[in-house]
Design a protein around this nucleic acid. Structure first.
Lengths: 151, 151
DNA sequence: TCATATTATCTTAGTAGCTAAGATATTTAT
DNA sequence: ATAAATATCTTAGCTACTAAGATAATATGA
């Protein structure tokens, strides 16, 4: 295969990742959240709710840092602390999904429309190619990361 | 188009960006660089060399932060400060590319091999699809970012 | 030419958010 | 009942950021 083309794809892939982070950071700033706060809020939304400790594990932050994270979100009334009924040491973080969505969706609206249009411009077969590339690339990167971290 | 599939691609795309950043951060840590330092070093390598001010513009950092960034790299002897001949206010940052490569390449080696193999598993036509998706998606994200930032 | 404005980088003071270590409160195990 | 383990919070110290001003070099204009 043309090695220049491979280089081009690799460069593009890096640019893609970087641009995506920049966009998410810009959205976060606009919403009054720091870049990392916005990123970690995404984890919470996907999971629905979780304990402070689970959030710490997922983000790789210490529990102390999570306390601060929750404090910042709670001050903005985007999440609520709730004692777990089965174990009163545990704090369940409950996102106010409606409020968070109301805050973020307008900022993503245009992007969402454009990217849907972009995806619609590909055939089903082509989308499968893109999906397959993403899936495999993610796996390779995760392998690399975990090897580097456990050594 | 199947809306669930679109959602799946969007989720994958976000995961891809996030995983990529995590990998680059892990590589950076292993090389003794903070996540952002590693990211910004990449800018410098791509450009070859630039002035402190250009680096500030490119990264979005203040000139004060760039001074600290250069200090950290200089202490590790990965870059050198050099007065510009035409304008002695300007400081040109010259990367020691050989040294930087020697530091980073071994950490990326395995990833590079695997991702080349992955790319080789696609046909030329399929690679064009992936390239086209990346190019257009990057543009959309850049538009979104700049709109959010200039408002 | 010389005074002034502009430009490029650095310095300083203040701040945010991180880690590490230890405190507190609750649960589990003996 | 006591000790150990667990979940979260608190505190001290650190790093890297911004904003504002200092310093030095260059450009401009009467």
């Amino acid at each position: 295969m043309d090695p220049e083309f491979v280089t081009q794809i690799r460069r593009l892939s890096q640019l893609y990742a970087y641009t995506s982070i920049q966009m998410h950071e810009a959205v976060g700033r606009k919403a009054g959240l720091s870049g990392t706060d916005h990123k970690y809020l995404g984890f919470l939304l996907q999971k629905g709710q979780m304990t402070a400790g689970e959030w710490a594990t997922l983000t790789g932050l210490t529990t102390g840092a999570i306390t601060g994270l929750i404090d910042r979100f709670e001050k903005k009334k985007l999440v609520k602390r709730q004692f777990a009924e089965d174990d009163r040491r545990k704090i369940i973080i409950v996102p106010d999904t409606k409020k968070i969505m109301a805050l973020l969706e307008p900022l993503y609206k245009e992007y969402r429309g454009k990217s849907e249009k972009l995806l619609a411009s590909f055939s089903a077969k082509e989308l499968k190619v893109i999906e397959s590339y993403f899936l495999q690339a993610v796996e390779i990167m995760q392998e690399t990361t975990s090897k580097l971290s456990n050594e």
